[in-house]
Write a protein that binds this DNA or RNA. Structure first.
Lengths: 120, 120
DNA sequence: ATTCGTTGTGTCTGGATGGACATAACCAGC
DNA sequence: GCTGGTTATGTCCATCCAGACACAACGAAT
């Protein structure tokens, strides 16, 4: 239900600082929220832990407050959770996605229709 | 008036084909429309003709109909104009930009506010 | 035929990017 | 104090990409 199923056109935000935030990071945050772990999220998304962690690091560095809170050691080796800020950022991005697909359906439809037909 | 003046966050569309269309290509199309030439547009945007042309080539290749029509030789060496399709694509992108900034002001505002303060 | 500004292409190279691998640090539970 | 799974970090390398440079093709005007 929350899955964006057929994103022929996806949204990416370009912050002035240089940070880019698009479907990849959004889905990663979502996966971390679901799994409670960066590594599990990475596995689920088919990316290496190294990559997943570096994306998290990048996001945490570019926002005033971290989006992901992590701890290591312990019963299950550690884990990670979204902070309130993290959930807010994710929610805001999702809202913009919905806004675009809903209110911008006409424009997106024209843009899609104008594409060269797939070279199946 | 048509200038997007203070884009702290900009929009980029990711087509499934792999084409990305953001402020750069949009501004390039606009500049070509204004200047009537790819090279003049490139100069105006501070990019090499090679780069400007390759972006145009990329766009033309990914849409069913070209966005830019060009001709070489002649009195002024040649020139380029936006096709009707080109104007439509540009207009659609601009409309989505406006939609996002207008209807998405709350979300964008929160995202901006959450950024780490500039290291001026 | 020469000129002139533009379109259209080829090639090279340095820097950024991402993937793969390796390894240390951590700590509840046993 | 050993284990196990996770976080955190470093390094190397193939590869992609942007920028720079060079140059051919074109055609109206003169």
């Amino acid at each position: 239900m929350a899955m964006t199923q057929d994103p022929r056109i996806s949204l990416r935000l370009h912050f002035e600082s240089g940070l880019t935030f698009g479907r990849g990071k959004a889905d990663l945050l979502q996966a971390i929220d679901d799994e409670g772990s960066i590594s599990a999220a990475g596995r689920r998304m088919g990316m290496s832990y190294r990559r997943a962690w570096s994306l998290v690091e990048e996001m945490n560095a570019h926002f005033a407050a971290p989006l992901v809170d992590s701890s290591r050691g312990g019963a299950h080796g550690g884990g990670a959770q979204l902070t309130e800020r993290g959930r807010q950022v994710l929610a805001d991005y999702r809202a913009l996605e919905v806004l675009l697909r809903d209110q911008g359906a006409a424009e997106l439809g024209r843009l899609r229709a104008g594409q060269r037909s797939a070279s199946a």
